[in-house]
Every structure is written in C-alpha cells, then in structure tokens.
Design a protein around this nucleic acid. Structure first.
Lengths: 340, 340
DNA sequence: TTTTATATTGCAATCGATTGCAAAGAGGCG
DNA sequence: CGCCTCTTTGCAATCGATTGCAATATAAAA
C-alpha cells in the first residue's frame, strides 16, 4: 500500500527514462514499442502502483467507456423497483459491461428523459444508454430515437417504434403457457395483465393465438386489466371470486407477481389451486418455486438479456447495425397449472 | 432537437460576445458575474442546447462527482442478487446521489476488491465507494480502510473494524422480535441464521438479550446455522421436523427469505403456523405480507439507509468526521407470530 | 478633480493522457 | 560507402473547462 500521492504519466516517464508518449503506448501494450521497453515500463508502473487517470484519458479521447442504465420503473403502472428480475438484469448488465471494459452509470426515476439524453450523452458522461422500462409506448423514447443518440431498450419490438430492443419472445411464451392450460382441459382461461404495455400486448397476442389454435372462442370478459403488482393481482381477483356471473377454470397471469397476489386471494377464499382454478405465470420469479403450490411459469433468460443489451449497445455505439432480439423462453412446469 | 455537433464553451463565448471565463462563471450562476450578463449567457446556452462537457470539467477540477457502488453479493453465503432489499437500497442510493449532484457507478462481483479501490478511486473514476455486502468480517474491507480511501459500508459496526457503517439496529430489532414471541407464550424459540455475519451476530445478541430478560435459559441446540437463502431455510427446517428430540414452539429467522423457506417446508409437513410453531422474520420483504399466513417481521428503513450512505460518504469525501449509524427498526405484526 | 473602493470581465496557465508526424538509429543491399 | 527501409522513440499540439490574478470601468469619497 504505497501512500504516495498520485503519480502522473510524466513521473513514470522520468522513472523509466523515456518519454510520456512511450509510457502511454507501453501501458496499452502497443506493438509500436519495443517489447523490452514495454515490459520495463509496465513493471515500473506496477511497482509504483500507477493508474492511468481515467478522467484525463476520457477527456483526451472523447470517449467515456461508460454506459448509462436508466430505470424507468413507474409506480403508476405497478412495477416495483424491488422486482427480482430488475436486480438480476442489472447484475448481468454490470458483469457484461465490465467484461467489455465499460463502466456502468445508474440512474433511476429521472425527472425527464429528454434531459437525460443531454445529461448523459451530450455532456459526455456516457457513450450510450440502456433503458429499462419501456412503459406504455413511451413517446419520450421515440423522441430519443429521433435525436440519433445511441441507446437500446429492454422490452418488445413494436413496428411503430424506431429504436432497437432486446426482450423475450413474449408471444411464443404466452402461446405455450396457454396451450399448456388447454392441454390440461381448461377452456375458460382468464388473462390478467395490462395490454397497453408492449410486452403484455405480445403476451395477449400469444394468448389469443393459443385459444384460436385450440378452437376456443376469445371472450373479452375473460380479459382482466391488471397492473404488474402483487397487490393488484390480489385485488382484481375479487372480480373472479365475487362476481357470480364470472366463470373461469384457469388464469394466465402476465407476471408471477400477479399470480402470487391472485393465489393469496384465492387461498383466502378457499378456492383450490389448481383443482378449481389453474394458474400459469410469467418470469420465473425466484418466488414462483416457493409459492404453495409452486407456480408454473414462463422463464425468461434475463442474464442473457443483460448481456445482449450491452453487446448490442456497444455495437450501436461503434456504428454497426444491429437488429431486435426476441430471446427464446421456456415453460417451467410446477403444480399450479394442474399437470398430472 | 438541434442536430448541431457539440458546442464548446468558446462557441458560447463567441455567441455571447464574452470570454470563456465569463461563460464558465455565468453557467454556474456565480455572483462574480453581472446578473444581466449571467442571464444572457444562460439563455444563449440553453437556446443552443449547450451542455458543459463533464469529462473536461472532471479532468480540470480533479473531482469526478461520482460515487461507486460495489455489490459484494457472494453466492457462497446464500445472498442472492435478486433480494428485493438490494434493489430498494440501490434505488434509494441512486436518488439521493442524484439529489446531491453525484453520478452513480455500479459494480457487481468484482474479481478483487483491492484492485477495486485502485480502479475507482486512484484512476479517478469515482470520489468514493459504497460497499454493500459486508460479508463475514471481510478482511479486504480492513485493508481498504488502511489505505485511507473514502468509503462507507452497509452493515453492522464492529469494534475491530476501522471503517464507517450504516445499518439497522439489528440488536434491538431482534430483541423486540423475540420478546414478542415470548409475550405470546413461546419459550422454546429457535434462531435461524449465520452468526458469523456481523449483522446476524447482532441479531443473535438481541435474541440472547430477550431470552435473558425473560428468564428463559439460552439453549445452544436451538441455534440453527442457516444462510440467507429461502432454500437453506427450507432445508434446515428438516432438522426441526424430522429430529424427534428437537422441540421448539417458535422460530426467529434472521431474514424473511429464510422464514419463507421455513414456512414452505412446514406447510408440506402440515405443521401449523402459528399454532404449532410461531415465526418472526426480518427485513419486511415485500413478500412477507403476501405469504400465508402473513409474516411478522422487523422492518428496516432501507430507503433511509440509502440516503444516509450517500450523505455520510459525501461528508467523508469532504473530509468531515462522521459516525456509525444504527437506524431504528419497527416490528410489523402479522399472523405468523401467533398474536391474538 | 484626484484618489480609493467596488463591481465586472478577461488573460493565460493548468489539469494528464493521447497521437500524428518527424527524427534517430539499426540493418540490408547494391 | 551511400542509399533505402524498418523499427523505435520523442516532440508538441490537443481535448474543454476552470480559476487566480490582473485589468478595466464605474461609483463613491475626499
């Protein structure tokens, strides 16, 4: 632990008896410098615990080697910051960014996303933006796209949007989830979720597709608008329990959180899951396996998602063309869907 | 949306007919500059969508106005990145940092925390470090403290450590949780947790204090080493169920996650909660209220914790002296503790 | 009217690393 | 021996904002 104050490159240059230019090149292992010199300079730098001043480098190179992650988790539509998936995604993004030599700036609840682009990109804090929380077709993202700044969004591809996304194959996931319920003999399958949200819209499409392919007519009464939260799942379940005209034998919930809320309410009302009502969720929340009964769900590969967000954003920054990603999903069968 | 390339301060100076120095001062609203001039310069800057180049400023001022958050979530001792509390803490830290004009760098699973101090502080990426995940008396933190770099740790104060912490009053929380069980007539109260972890050591102290004050002898057989995970809570419950010589009428779990795992296992074994075994957890995990029965728990004010971490770290960076913080906790009574 | 105090603004050095270009040295070839 | 090539290193400009100090203008005091 050398307690010496901060050395600069010129100190190292003096110690090694070479110029600053040589030190700079040696430290990045440039072929321009004789191997012997290179190693000597590197050894001296290490010995004196010298670290390149990133602020100076960023300034000179006009690159920050930093990505900014913006969490647009809007209480309004019931997403909570505490969602397990957020943290997993964030962790994966952080790991992948580090792996590519990028630092990660984090921002939550920005007052204004327009300012945000200014704040991060124009003022040279970050080279690109990862937006998590597509919201309900947020027009601010479209404006961001117009401005031409490098960014990428976690969520669903929508033809009317002009930005790149990474997300799961929500349509296919929902299709398979609902088909599973159908195979288990369920015919009146409720949909709980908020279809105004792009990802959920795709899940609703998958739900419809599955019913159609099974020859089951679509019934709008079975669509129960629900936000992402456990509490809203809990509350909207009243509708199912208390309305005597409402009949369903299964529920497809667009998130495990909703499913957890539903199951809590059903348990209180002594409705048996899966015997009376079967349930399939989405996300494979770590809790899904610990609920009683275990929740059958659609697993997203969130860690892969984080990696792809980073890789593709870096490609965008580097001026390459990248496409949307809809990652494969996997149905995880537990007890709640009524499988044998 | 001006698509103009990046303006510099000298552009604004030219447009305003003043010097760069004046622009610089005007933009930070310095009293040195005539109010009229100030407003005019600000207006021009706004009009042209000029943003100060942070890289240049940081370089010149030798301050980064950035804090680095390091997540030391070690799978080894069962903490999962997906823990709800992590995300809440992180969100609160991010908000508070933004409020103080600091950016937030995020890093998870660093290879080496020593390098980390170099990486962030010495190479001028951040002004200070927030460490989350104190671990089992991590010696690396002690080394970090020796090096004199500004940092702060979420966790528990231990006399043998030479760094500043922010955390909850774990001892008091545990004391009240266990006292509640005692008041409900329980006398054989198991402790589930890993006392090698500083925060848990304090909770064990609180547990012991409560028993002592209630005149109940401490029984080492009732201490069940358990890591932080739901799954370990689930597994260690076997001990309670399957060992015929083991008798307890209540469990104090050092985290709600453990409590959830325990309850899952007890439900499978058809042990009634709270009638046969009462349970109190810790954290007030958002799930605690959604478990059946709802889990009585000790709530930590995590959002406040995040704020204090940031404020105190900034004080440390500014050279002020700050003390440890043990935030007040609150027992949240639900059904699992067997209250009337 | 001269002097002094005050309010504004500008000059110019500075932060530390990077990089295009030039220069010096080493070796090869005719 | 002279010319050319290739390797290795150094020179010096540059990135953009900040700030101590000096300079100027303006007002107040003598």
């Amino acid at each position: 632990m050398t307690k010496s104050k901060n050395l600069t490159m010129s100190d190292i240059a003096r110690l090694a008896g070479v110029s600053e230019a040589t030190v700079s090149r040696a430290l990045k292992n440039s072929e321009l410098i004789n191997k012997e010199t290179r190693l000597r300079v590197q050894a001296i730098a290490r010995e004196h615990n010298y670290k390149v001043n990133t602020a100076a480098r960023n300034f000179r190179t006009q690159k920050t080697h930093t990505l900014a992650v913006v969490l647009l988790v809007d209480k309004e539509w019931g997403h909570e910051v505490s969602d397990a998936f957020l943290m997993v995604l964030l962790g994966s993004i952080a790991d992948e960014a580090a792996h590519h030599g990028y630092d990660l700036l984090l921002s939550t609840n920005p007052h204004d996303i327009d300012d945000l682009a200014d704040y991060y990109i124009d003022s040279k804090r970050a080279d690109g933006l990862i937006i998590i929380g597509q919201g309900r077709n947020d027009p601010r993202l479209d404006r961001l796209a117009e401005s031409g700044r490098p960014f990428i969004v976690w969520g669903a591809e929508m033809p009317e949007h002009d930005y790149i996304t990474v997300g799961s194959d929500n349509r296919k996931g929902a299709y398979e989830a609902v088909s599973l319920l159908v195979r288990n003999g369920r015919t009146r399958i409720a949909f709980m979720g908020d279809a105004r949200h792009p990802e959920m819209e795709h899940r609703l499409d998958g739900y419809s597709d599955a019913l159609r392919d099974a020859g089951i007519p679509f019934d709008a009464n079975l669509i129960i608008p629900t936000d992402f939260s456990r509490s809203d799942g809990y509350m909207k379940t009243d509708h199912i329990i208390l309305d005597p005209t409402f009949k369903c034998d299964a529920i497809f919930a667009v998130s495990d959180n909703i499913a957890l809320g539903v199951m809590k309410r059903l348990a209180e009302a002594e409705v048996k899951v899966p015997e009376e009502i079967a349930i399939v969720g989405f996300d494979d929340n770590p809790l899904a396996v610990f609920a009683t009964p275990g929740i059958t769900t659609v697993r997203q590969d969130i860690r892969l998602g984080g990696k792809l967000l980073v890789r593709n954003l870096i490609d965008i920054i580097d001026g390459k063309t990248v496409g949307h990603v809809a990652m494969p999903v996997e149905v995880i069968v537990r007890e709640s869907c009524g499988n044998a």
